[in-house]
């Protein structure tokens, strides 16, 4: 992997010989297409077995019920593209959900309860990013530490009390816009915005450069440290947005860290085509990967895979997706 750093190509200058549209699409978004193909294939197969799979309700469950993971994975993808990792995001979402729910129940205006997790998430991740960028501690070390601190802190502060009696206006994830559930809309809008921003803004493109080779990026005048902090802060904002979807889906907030959430988010980001070595990948892929997991989870129930074998089949499908992408890359090189 280390020999191959596939940066998304710059827009070709007008008049230059442009390769065919599909070839370019395949070159730029190969892993995303593999994941998308897997999703489509699953939909076709399972719908043939049980047509209810494609009912509006089930589509809502698949796309909307896991939107918070996709939103968190967008920020995670950016962090990974920059060459870092964050294993503390699950704990962070747990902490932010408690803050948000507590404010909502305490009678603060709803917009404060929604804004607080975003701001606190940015603040926490500013500290993490600062330690990574300026104190030069590897991000896995900082976030492993932060994971412990937040997980332990959450329990000792809340004592594990659940938050109930949430005001109905707070529960935005249960509402819909233009007939579409809010989480779905948020997921799509954020993914598209983030993808455009990553591809076409100078800032976004500099992240690929930092992830590809931080020293070279520094030499070309990119303020690597500042950008690193900024990426973590943005990631914190996405974690905050994910928290809003997470905390408002039910009428109860569990004041514990959702089990293994960080692994789910990281898996979504990396399976979606973000090379863990940094410097490549897109946020579209991470969202598609979240949808893939959700589809797999739902599909296996629909086709009556023995519940005991569910996780093994999920693992096998993930592995197959990864290997398919690697074969694709090998074919290209």
């Amino acid at each position: 992997m280390s020999a191959v750093v596939d940066l998304p190509p710059t827009r070709p200058a007008s008049g230059a010989q442009r390769p065919g549209f599909f070839r370019r699409l395949f070159a730029d978004y190969g892993q995303e297409l593999v994941v998308l193909a897997a999703v489509v294939a699953l939909f076709i197969v399972v719908t043939m077995v049980n047509p209810r799979f494609i009912s509006a309700n089930n589509l809502t469950t698949i796309f909307s019920g896991n939107a918070y993971i996709a939103v968190a994975a967008i920020g995670m993808a950016m962090v990974i593209i920059t060459g870092h990792i964050d294993v503390s995001v699950g704990a962070l979402i747990g902490v932010l959900a408690t803050i948000s729910g507590t404010l909502a129940v305490a009678g603060y205006p709803i917009w404060i309860a929604w804004l607080a997790p975003v701001l606190v998430g940015m603040a926490v991740n500013a500290c993490i990013g600062g330690l990574v960028a300026y104190a030069r501690i590897p991000s896995i070390v900082v976030t492993l530490g932060a994971l412990s601190i937040m997980r332990g802190g959450l329990i000792s502060v809340t004592g594990g009390t659940w938050i109930t009696n949430l005001p109905p206006s707070f529960l935005i994830a249960q509402k819909s816009v233009l007939g579409l559930p809010v989480p779905l809309v948020v997921m799509v809008v954020l993914t598209v915005l983030a993808a455009l921003w990553m591809r076409y803004s100078a800032f976004g493109r500099s992240l690929y450069a930092i992830g590809g080779n931080a020293e070279a990026a520094l030499a070309t005048g990119i303020p690597v440290e500042r950008r690193t902090v900024a990426v973590f802060v943005i990631h914190g904002a996405f974690a905050g947005l994910a928290t809003i979807l997470f905390a408002t889906q039910l009428q109860v907030i569990q004041s514990t860290v959702p089990p293994n959430l960080e692994l789910t988010v990281i898996t979504a980001a990396v399976i979606g085509g973000v090379s863990i070595l940094g410097g490549s990948g897109t946020v579209i892929g991470s969202t598609l990967a979240t949808i893939l997991f959700a589809t797999i989870g739902s599909a296996l129930i629909f086709v009556n895979v023995s519940a005991y074998w569910l996780r093994a089949v999920i693992g096998l499908l993930i592995l197959a997706t990864v290997l398919a992408d690697m074969l694709r890359r090998r074919g290209r090189i």
């Binding site: 049980n50 209810r52 799979f53 009912s55 309700n57 089930n58 809502t60 469950t61 019920g65 896991n66 889906q249 039910l250 959700a294 989870g297 739902s298 129930i301 629909f302």
Partner: peptide
């Protein structure tokens, strides 16, 4: 929540 939804969708 998601698992219950899937059950509801599956069995109608």
């Amino acid at each position: 929540f998601n698992q219950t939804n899937t059950l509801l969708n599956k069995y109608g």
